[in-house]
Design a protein around this nucleic acid. Structure first.
Lengths: 265, 265
DNA sequence: CGTTGGGTTGATCGACCTCAATAAAAGTGG
DNA sequence: CCACTTTTATTGAGGTCGATCAACCCAACG
C-alpha cells in the first residue's frame, strides 16, 4: 500500500573542500551599518539591489534600505532558522547556498529548494517561518528587521509591489518543480537540477564556467523525489557520458546541449 | 532513458451529468454593473470578498471594488484564456471549477491545479498569462480590468498587501503539491487530492457533505503525475474499501479518518 | 585507530507504466 | 428518438524504472 519514504536521520551536509571564499568575500560581512557607500559598491546581490531594481530611481531607494541592513555570517551546516520560529526579519542570501526544507507531518523531510546569492528567503510577512533554512556552505545573509521593513513598506509602496514580483517568480519556480517531480524520469530530474543550478549560478557570476554544488546527494534526492542511490547513479552516468565533470563540490558542464536535451527544458 | 509521457491530444473534459446550477445561481451573472447593492448580497465569493477580507473596513472597500467588477459565464470545456495571451484583467472564480494548466516545452500538458469558487486566477500583474485556464463545468468569473485594478492599487495600498497574502497562500499550496508529487505513492496522491478537494469545497459550503469532482481522470492524472489507469484503479480501490462513494461527478467521503491516514496529511 | 557521515556499486523486487481490449457515456446528425 | 461517432472510464497482463537491501570505500575527526 505504501512505499518509498525512509526517514533520514540527520539532514546534515558536507563541508565543501574548495570554495576559497572568493564569492562571499565580494560582500564581506565586516561592514558596519553606517558605511552605506562601501556597502553599495561591495554588495553584489544584497537585499537592496534585489528589491530596488525597478529602474533608475534605484539610487535613492537603495540608500534608504541600505541604512537598515544587517549582515550575518553562517558556517556550513548551521541553522538559520527553524520551521515554527518567529520570523524576525526579511532576509536575502548574499553569498553561499542555503537549503530550504520543511518537515512533513509524518516526520519525513522535504527539501523545498536551494537559495543562491540574490535569492530572497522567507518572503512572507507572517509571524512565524513555515520552513527551515540551513547553511550548506559558508553563507552570508543580508537582513532587515521585520518592523523596519513593515514601516518602510508603509511609506514606500513600491517595496510591496516589488515583493509581489519576487513572490510570483518564486511561484513560477515552484510550479516548474511540480512539473519536474510529476512528469520526469530520474535522469531528467537530475539533468534539470544541474541545468537549473547552472543557469542560476550564471546569473550570479556569468564569467564562471564551473559552478558550486555543495549540497549532499541526500539533499538533492529529497529535493528531486529520488533516493540517494539513484541520484548517485544518474550523476555517475552523466559524468561517464561526458555531459558534466565533477571535482569535489564543483561541477563543470561539458555538453550544455546534451544536458538541455536530457532535461527536456 | 526516458519513460512516461504520452501526449494526450485533446485536454477536453466531460460535462457533468448533475450539478443543476445550484451554487452558481447564488451569484447570478445577469447583474448589471451599477447594482452594487445587489451584488454585495448575492456574490458569496467574489473578488471583492476575497481581496477585501482584512477586517471591519471591508464595507467601504467592498463598494469601491464592486463598482468595477464584471461577471462572465463560461460553458463547460470553454477556454477562459490561453498561455501567452495578454492578461486583461484580474479574475476570481465565483462558481464552478476551472482547470489551470500549462503546456511544457516538449508539448506535454501539466495541470497546475483546479480553481474552486473563491480562488484567484492569475494573481500576477504581468503582461501575459503564463498558463491556460479552462472551465471544467459551468463557471462564473468575477473580473476587474487590469488598469482599473492598477489604479485602485495606487490609492489603496492594502490591495497590494492583500494580494501578497494570496500569493503566499498559493505558494504554500504549490509547495504542498511538490511534497505530494515528490514523496507520495499513487494511493496517497489520490487520497491527498480527494482530501484536499473535500476541504476546499467545505470552505465554499460547509453544509454539503458530498462534493463535486467534475474534472476528467486524465486531468487528475496529469495533476498528480500518474497515468489515467492508475488514477482509475486507485479511485476504484477507495470505493471498494468504502472510503469514498461516487455518483457521477459527485464524491462523498464515507470515512474521512481513513482518507486522512491514506493521504498522510 | 576506531568511528561516523557521506559516497559508490551491485542484486533483487515491486509499484506503476504500458499496451490492449471492452464498456459506458456523451455528443451528433438524421 | 435512434444509429453513429468520439470521448472517457474500466479492467487485465506484462514489462521496466527506480526503490530497497546490502555491501564496501573513503575522508574527516576525536
Amino acid at each position: 500500500m505504501n512505499s518509498v519514504q525512509q526517514i533520514r536521520k540527520k539532514p546534515s551536509d558536507k563541508t565543501p573542500p574548495r570554495r576559497p571564499a572568493r564569492l562571499w568575500r565580494a560582500c564581506d560581512a565586516r561592514i558596519t551599518v553606517r558605511q552605506t557607500g562601501i556597502a553599495e559598491k561591495a554588495c553584489q546581490s544584497c537585499i537592496v539591489r534585489q528589491l530596488a531594481e525597478s529602474g533608475a530611481i534605484a539610487g535613492a531607494r537603495h540608500q534608504l534600505l541600505s541604512a537598515q541592513v544587517r549582515r550575518t555570517h553562517y558556517a556550513p551546516r548551521k541553522n538559520l532558522f527553524l520551521q515554527g520560529m518567529p520570523a524576525a526579519s526579511v532576509q536575502i542570501v548574499t553569498s553561499g547556498v542555503v537549503r530550504v526544507s520543511r518537515t512533513l507531518l509524518d516526520g519525513q523531510r522535504q527539501v523545498l529548494g536551494f537559495a543562491l546569492p540574490g535569492d530572497l528567503l522567507d518572503a512572507s510577512l507572517s509571524a512565524t517561518h513555515d520552513f527551515s533554512a540551513d547553511a550548506v556552505d559558508q553563507v552570508l545573509i543580508c537582513q532587515i528587521p521585520r518592523e523596519v521593513f513593515a514601516s518602510l513598506a508603509e511609506t514606500e509602496p513600491w517595496l510591496v509591489r516589488r515583493l509581489n514580483d519576487v513572490l510570483i517568480e518564486k511561484l513560477r519556480c515552484a510550479e516548474q518543480q511540480m512539473a519536474v517531480l510529476g512528469h520526469k524520469s530520474a535522469i531528467e530530474r537530475v539533468a534539470c537540477f544541474l541545468s537549473n543550478l547552472h543557469q542560476r549560478w550564471a546569473k550570479v557570476d556569468a564569467r564562471q564556467k564551473a559552478f558550486s554544488m555543495p549540497m549532499s546527494q541526500a539533499d538533492i534526492a529529497d529535493f528531486l523525489g529520488l533516493t540517494i542511490e539513484t541520484v548517485n547513479r544518474m550523476l555517475a552516468q552523466l559524468v561517464r557520458d561526458r555531459v558534466i565533470a565533477r571535482a569535489g563540490s564543483t561541477v563543470t558542464v561539458m555538453d550544455a546541449a546534451r544536458l538541455g536535451v536530457l532535461a527536456r527544458t
